[in-house]
Design a protein around this nucleic acid. Sequence first.
DNA 1: CCTGATTGTTGCGATATGTGGAATAGTGAA
DNA 2: TTCACTATTCCACATATCGCAACAATCAGG
Lengths: 299, 299
Amino acid sequence: MGDLESIKVFLAVAEQRSFVAAARTLGMTPPSVTRSLNALEEKLGVQLLLRTTRQVSLTSAGAAYAARVAPLVQGFDDATEDIRDGQSQTAGLIRINAPMSMGERVLPDVIAQFRTLHPRVSVALTLTDRMIDIVSENTDLAIRISEPPKDKLTIWRKICRVPRLLVASPRYLDAHGTPETPEDLTRHTCIGYDSDAGPEVWDLANGASRRRITAGAVLSSNNGDLTARLAINGEGITLLPRFITADALQAGTLRPVLPDWTPPELWLTLYYPPYDRLPTRLATFSDFFETYVTETRPM
Amino acid sequence: MGDLESIKVFLAVAEQRSFVAAARTLGMTPPSVTRSLNALEEKLGVQLLLRTTRQVSLTSAGAAYAARVAPLVQGFDDATEDIRDGQSQTAGLIRINAPMSMGERVLPDVIAQFRTLHPRVSVALTLTDRMIDIVSENTDLAIRISEPPKDKLTIWRKICRVPRLLVASPRYLDAHGTPETPEDLTRHTCIGYDSDAGPEVWDLANGASRRRITAGAVLSSNNGDLTARLAINGEGITLLPRFITADALQAGTLRPVLPDWTPPELWLTLYYPPYDRLPTRLATFSDFFETYVTETRPM
DNA sequence: CCTGATTGTTGCGATATGTGGAATAGTGAA
DNA sequence: TTCACTATTCCACATATCGCAACAATCAGG
């Protein structure tokens, strides 16, 4: 018999001063109560109860032990109940990891709105642009912009497409000319995303036509906002998600380039650790995030 | 598997981030660790660990649970250790029950001296003149002046004889005359001890001669000090332990009566609850009490 | 004083539970 | 790709656990 269960039996007997009464309330048989208590007393090496066939009372050691362990048992029960609630209800901590570009733009508002809906949820937000090992980083949910799979032990969920377009600053285009065809890009400075997988490749499509351009030969960055700033400063042409360049396009500090040629689709994707079944709070947040990003604030 | 043990396994795995390492430190096999954790997670309905064959990490629920139950487990271990120490060493609480006459005279000094020798012992002292049911009164040790046995479930230990003698005040003796033989007592007011067993009987012996006198017909009390005061006030003759009347005899406010005739011996006796084996602190106190009462301050 | 009812304990047989060793699948490093 | 290591699963076996029934001890009531 487990220790904790023995202690619960002991507390029940100590409270009711009866073996059979304790057995009834615990749904056991009197013999089990006897054996459980014998085991506990033997384990402790201390006599806890004074038994007569007609009455049961505590030794002083038993009384001290009962007073001491009763709150601990209560603490276990509370912890069990809380963790169960936290699992079934949408409460508890969500550790989110996201790329910096999203962390600075959409996430503060997402989290604020979500927390007004679910006040019992806490959020711990870390920003990383590198793709992380989700399990070793202690993350419940990683937001990434990528083409879905990676390894087979993470679970992912596609949220929405992330439109991208080629952009450059008016000053740059005035100085170097506006490309008319993908082939023209080879004569331009193409600011690429700096990945350790090697230089970035832009696979552009226009209807059935496809062209492949290698970017980042002379200038690259591993951060979308930094890349955008370089482009605005007139350093070259780059390929970025629209939500990063939207403000600059609106302000006219960036202009679309080759608008008929579209790069491969990227997906806003949620990655989860290898849960067998997702905790409620993560599912709830994922749903909320999807509606937010597709309806409230489309990318 | 017991709950508490499962939790310990979980904590070991959470700390070492490895099943086999935890199995080693706990002296188990890896399969047992796996099963134990599966059982715990199933019981809680929550996934606590994210397992990959190469690394183990905590879910946020698991981290919260670990942080919460770790001090509780520590509390159990501490409680277990303390109660073991308290049993083997002379420490802990001793609940003593004594008659009022002793509580006011010898016990304060006994307890004070004992506690300077054993500072980790606490004493809870209750005074009752009635013989109590030791188990239902939550007492570890009852001090009584009586003829030993009562029922068969209590354990007793004779400490020493308690000499008694017949006494009366000089004023009473002057007024009513001094008895010369036990038979004279029948013409006197004999203050008896008020027990529900009926009127007190004085069995007096002088060598081979024996006389039986019934006392308490007109005046009785259930408290030795009160009886002594009545005698000092000249209400009659009474039979009391010497340690109660010693001061009055010294001061001359009481005088011995029929000094050649001695009543049956009473024994200072310690009664214990039906322990299978006596806790150390009770044995130590009993030994100390015996030496105190036979050597330091004989009755 | 005796009897009946209740309580805590023990013996025993059936069941279930847990155990360790070997085999398996998955993963990271060389 | 191979190799070493990890967590898991499978399976046979031993152990313990359980409930029922019988037993001893005690108290209440006649």
